[in-house]
Design a protein around this nucleic acid. Structure first.
Length: 243
DNA sequence: GCGACAG
DNA sequence: ATCTTGTCGC
């Protein structure tokens, strides 16, 4: 496969907002300003050959955090490339604003990639967010790459539990508006919550979620990234990018 | 005022 | 998110 690789070795030039918000008010303002750039809906004819999973692990007793990006072959689920980095948290965790805590580190790790993934699966929500601009939307806009979110818990919205069989889904709604879907990736196991990030439809995002969740509740992309970020944070694996 | 609140 | 032991099950 002919993956795009620039001469410098840096595949993506992602720019963080300047300056990066430091207060809740500033962060909310940024979300309100960028939310209008989100495009829900599938890109025209672009096959997905590579899928990236991203995740961040936190130290319990310090403000260190490690981000990991794992690129998989969408068909075989083989790991094609990884990028990791360890940094320090600057923004506190606030429900609805955690993108501001994780994105700086996540973007640093993404810049370390030699290839541009066709799709990025995020750990958290996209449109299923108070201002319809969760981490998956934010990252999709900054990287201009199709993204969607797979969260383990609901943040906003209501849903009726989907049928107990794997593959069953039900809408996640806020005041009648569909913002995502509860997806049963394993029979009789708590569903995950899928929502659009950028340049993808909810149906396609749900289909990818099931394709990527072969043996466990969470997609393999998320599992790989979660494991790698913990190993790097623990110092058992060296980060590939300088913090 | 009270409870909820992605990771 | 992270702190934590054993335990039930394939």
């Amino acid at each position: 496969m002919d993956l795009y690789v620039s001469e410098s070795g840096v595949a993506m030039e992602i720019q963080l907002a300047e300056p990066w918000p430091t207060t809740v008010a500033e962060a909310v303002a940024v979300q309100r300003r960028l939310r209008h750039r989100v495009r829900a809906g599938d890109d025209a004819g672009s096959p997905v050959r590579t899928v990236a999973g991203v995740d961040v692990a936190y130290a319990a007793d310090s403000d260190r955090l490690a981000a990991a990006v794992v690129v998989l072959d969408h068909t075989t689920l083989d790991v094609l490339e990884t990028s990791t980095v360890v940094t320090t948290a600057e923004f506190p965790y606030e429900p609805g604003l955690f993108a501001f805590r994780e994105l700086p580190t996540l973007v640093t790790a993404l810049r370390g990639l030699r290839t541009v993934p066709d799709l990025i699966v995020c750990d958290g929500h996209g449109l299923a967010h108070p201002r319809r601009f969760g981490l998956a939307c934010h990252l999709g806009i900054l990287a201009d790459v199709p993204t969607f979110g797979v969260a383990k818990n609901v943040h906003v919205g209501e849903f009726v539990p989907p049928a107990s069989q794997r593959g069953a889904t039900s809408p996640l709604t806020v005041g009648g508006e569909v913002v995502g879907a509860a997806v049963r990736t394993r029979s009789r196991v708590k569903p995950v919550f899928v929502s659009v990030g950028h340049r993808i439809s909810l149906d396609t995002a749900c289909a990818h979620t099931l394709t990527l969740s072969t043996h466990y509740r969470l997609p393999e992309t998320t599992r790989h990234a979660d494991h790698l970020s913990r190993e790097v944070l623990a110092g058992r694996i060296s980060p590939t990018v300088a913090g």
